[in-house]
Design a binder for these strands. Structure first.
Lengths: 348, 348
DNA sequence: TTTATTTGTGCATTCGTATGCCTAGCTTGG
DNA sequence: CCAAGCTAGGCATACGAATGCACAAATAAA
């Protein structure tokens, strides 16, 4: 076990040595610090003989460049912030996993900025994050009212709006075609013969929810009654609660359209708990097609959004914007598709 | 829209001004740069009059200290790495959310290091991360064979092993009492009268799985037959596949103990898909008590682990270790408890 | 052989903040 | 009234790597 551990900090040096610096490598290789820096960065001016010598010395000393020093010198950090509303939501988890992967490939790390709607990061708080330790932001939490994106952009923060958007802003956007998604879901329900549909949506201030409603209304027209469009957070609990209320009402809908799969699953759980069978008694359709949607317990019919492409493209766009602030603004809109499973059927 | 944006970088200064530096504040406040630094850090030597003057100037200029420069100077980054195996797993999501919260409160950010079992980060790769941009590591991916923790520790990397542990290592550990957890699950099944139990576990190299099996065996004795202990990844899919095989075998078990809730849900989905009712035909018990376990579709009986405390304590321990490398090594073991829901019953 | 050119390194400075040390001016005690 | 002490702040340097510029050596051109 612990053999009388020395309490002198210096004593550690004998066991593991303090981190080697470029000047240590320089001494070991018999060159200057600048040559070490150049050799390891493959500067063509360094002869291959020297380069090898330096490489060897660096390896023997276990030299790894100090990224903080490099970042200071190069005035960037290779870290980007990813703002999400809710780390508990399966959709964001899948999104984050893919973004992480893509950023890593490009040599960037990321920092999560969790920003629930009720905590709305003000620009002041963000500014702190943006001191210099963040090269840019992927924002998945944009809300329609907020002026934060505009402010940040004025400050010259490289940024892309991902998943959700805000209109009339000169900023890169990567999202799904949510209007088409709303249409797709609605057409599917209409084609099955549903006339009395309710919508359990997310917060009104999110473009995803708005666009999906717009799409649905284009198909349903006035048969989608305003009081049948319910808003709340994107959570299982919210779906559950809204569904209870809907099914307890005088005339329960024959189908429920949820703003995303997590809500849809909440809806299903509530319906089943109340003794309803899905899809016999009530049809349910979601959006996103998260992994869970395919589990046997749910087998949820849903409008699939290409989460992976959105994640990858958001990361790429941000990096492009960071590396060339003057490149033209882009707006990517990815197509969606219907994944039919077992939660929709004609009404009784 | 974009009014003929100037391409001269200098031109940006007129609109948003390049970031203000401490020396800009110094000029504005009529003091030296050092005084600015001291004033903003509440150094007692600065008079309150001067302090206010500096604060005002800083605020007017929108000055935010450059954290990269500060980190270089202070030789730390206030960023810690959190190694997880699998970001898709609900348990880790809950853990991460809580760690994030706790680290944030202490002024630390974190970087995710996703490290699937099949990708086993070698120390070389880790070393890169640890150049200087990471102050420490929370490792949730320790496996019993790996020598990575020992190596890192020898290098003096502040580290805590979280959730899972490795024996005989002088390192901080924060975990649940998994042996007790195994006992708890087993006792519950035994008390219901189950004699033929199967275990759908995680990878053999994880201490969680090992400890839970140890605990279970202490209760079951030899009635937990070796060929009834199945290993695989901690995924819904794995639980699903193992369950199929178990129920198709000549003598299906009357109860299945899964190494965590995600596996347990996979097990339930497979059983139901094959026409079995839970708990009438087969009992299922999990570990962790993730949020999903309480959803109506599952109502999973499970051994609850205090994920939040583990997350919070891991974060705190790491920070303690970073700030005082000589503090005594600790080993926290949190109690577990049984959450009874509707997936266990006496065998038929 | 001398001058021009290329090639390979080193020197010195820079990034922006924090801090050890020094000093001018004021206070206090003898 | 002067020595000692205290205050409030400035000067200069360090953190560690990257890089513009200078320059020596080696090669090519004249």
């Amino acid at each position: 076990m612990s053999k009388a551990m020395s309490t002198h900090p210096q004593a550690r040096q004998q066991t593991s040595s303090a981190r080697a610096l470029s000047r240590d490598v320089a001494v070991a290789a018999g060159v200057s610090q600048s040559t070490v820096s150049r050799a390891l960065r493959d500067d063509p001016r360094i002869s291959s003989a020297t380069r090898e010598r330096v490489r060897l010395a660096a390896q023997q000393l276990g030299y790894v460049p100090n990224s903080v020093a490099r970042n200071l010198r190069e005035r960037r950090s290779r870290v980007v912030g990813v703002m999400v509303e809710d780390i508990d939501n399966a959709f964001y988890q899948e999104l984050l996993a893919d973004m992480h992967q893509e950023l890593l490939l490009a040599g960037y790390a990321f920092t999560l900025i969790v920003d629930p709607l009720h905590l709305r990061s003000d620009v002041a708080r963000l500014t702190h994050l943006l001191d210099a330790s963040l090269d840019g932001l992927i924002v998945t939490t944009a809300t329609l009212g907020s002026d934060a994106p505009a402010t940040l952009q004025r400050r010259g923060v490289p940024m892309v709006l991902s998943v959700r958007s805000v209109p009339n802003l000169q900023v890169d956007i990567v999202e799904s075609d949510n209007v088409a998604a709303g249409q797709l879901a609605a057409r599917h329900l209409v084609s099955l013969g549903h006339q009395d549909v309710a919508a359990v949506m997310g917060p009104e201030v999110t473009s995803t929810t708005q666009d999906r409603i717009v799409g649905a209304k284009q198909v349903f027209g006035h048969s989608l009654l305003p009081h049948r469009v319910l808003h709340g957070p994107y959570s299982h609990e919210s779906g559950h609660a809204h569904c209870r209320r809907l099914l307890q009402s005088e005339q329960p809908p024959t189908a429920i359209m949820a703003a995303n799969d997590v809500l849809a699953i909440g809806v299903m759980d509530a319906a089943r708990q109340m003794g309803y069978s899905i899809p016999e008694d009530v049809s349910v359709i979601g959006f996103d097609d998260i992994q869970m949607a395919s589990w046997h317990s749910f087998r949820l019919t849903t409008v699939r959004q290409d989460t992976k492409s959105i994640a990858v493209q958001s990361a790429r766009r941000l990096i492009e914007r960071i590396e060339d602030p003057n490149s033209p603004i882009t707006h990517d809109k990815f197509p969606v598709s219907l994944t039919m499973r077992s939660t929709t059927a004609p009404p009784k």
